[in-house]
């Protein structure tokens, strides 16, 4: 009888653990880093389910305001999560988890020797950037082009990607000769064998501070907080910097 009772307790304990599932909305520049982080997390938490959806930060921001079922939101900037905190859609403060870097990337040309000034060259007819109206990487690309003094020469050559991953696709297919992309995408297995890149000096644009929040609906979900905590771990920091992100000092996961 005692054994049976213990067995029942065990089964119910296991099934409660099993029931934990979170959905993470992550900016497109995190695609490769986050895939790795989640698969590592699952190794040490085999019963938990973590589902990640990638897209543009602006779209996730609007969706969360309309009640989208996301438990954590990793933005490519600080402004979107900050606004969610201000209007009560977050259970945590905004936590800075990384700085993104921008690069010039090309599959057709040797981008490793290129500077922003070279984009004015008549041989380059199409330059892909993310849409500056709502994509953080697009805003930074525009700032850098203005700071480098080439905006007026290149504006008519710009084509706009919907988010940074779509922008990468426009260059990778050769439809634009050059693009301003996230370093994290340039280092990805998808892009790195197919082209070359050069870092854009980060003093040419505002920093690409990236913040995340636990959303209000996930306030009582243990798994959401455990995943947030996990973001500050040494292994995650290693994965993030391997994928081209610059990390803030100290523990990023402490909320």
């Amino acid at each position: 009888m005692k054994t049976l009772l213990m067995f029942c307790c065990l089964v119910s304990a296991v099934s409660t653990v099993h029931a934990e599932k979170i959905t993470v909305a992550a900016a497109a520049d995190l695609k490769f880093a986050m895939d790795e982080i989640v698969s590592e997390f699952k190794k040490s938490n085999p019963t938990d389910e973590v589902e990640v959806i990638y897209g543009s930060s602006g779209k996730f921001h609007a969706q969360i305001r309309q009640g989208a079922p996301y438990d954590l939101f990793f933005s490519a900037d600080m402004a979107f999560p900050r606004e969610l905190v201000k209007s009560g859609f977050a259970a945590s403060e905004v936590k800075l988890y990384a700085w993104g870097r921008t690069v010039l990337w090309s599959g057709a040309l040797d981008a490793s020797k290129m500077t922003l000034a070279d984009l004015a060259d008549a041989a380059i007819s199409r330059i892909a950037v993310a849409n500056p109206r709502h994509a953080p990487y697009g805003k930074r690309a525009e700032e850098a082009l203005r700071a480098a003094g080439v905006w007026d020469q290149v504006e008519s050559k710009l084509v706009y990607g919907e988010n940074i991953a779509h922008t990468a696709q426009l260059v990778q297919t050769g439809n634009a000769q050059v693009g301003i992309l996230a370093l994290s995408l340039a280092l990805s297995p998808e892009l790195s064998p197919k082209g070359s890149y050069r870092l854009i000096p980060d003093d040419l644009h505002e920093p690409l501070e990236q913040g995340f929040i636990v959303t209000a609906r996930a306030g009582a979900k243990g798994l959401a907080w455990r995943f947030a905590e996990h973001m500050g771990s040494a292994s995650v920091r290693e994965v993030m910097s391997k994928h081209g992100f610059v990390l803030p000092a100290g523990s990023a996961g402490a909320l």
Partner: peptide, 8 residues
């Protein structure tokens, strides 16, 4: 259009 237009 979104995929091939480049939003110009």
């Amino acid at each position: 259009v979104l995929m091939i237009g480049g939003n110009i």
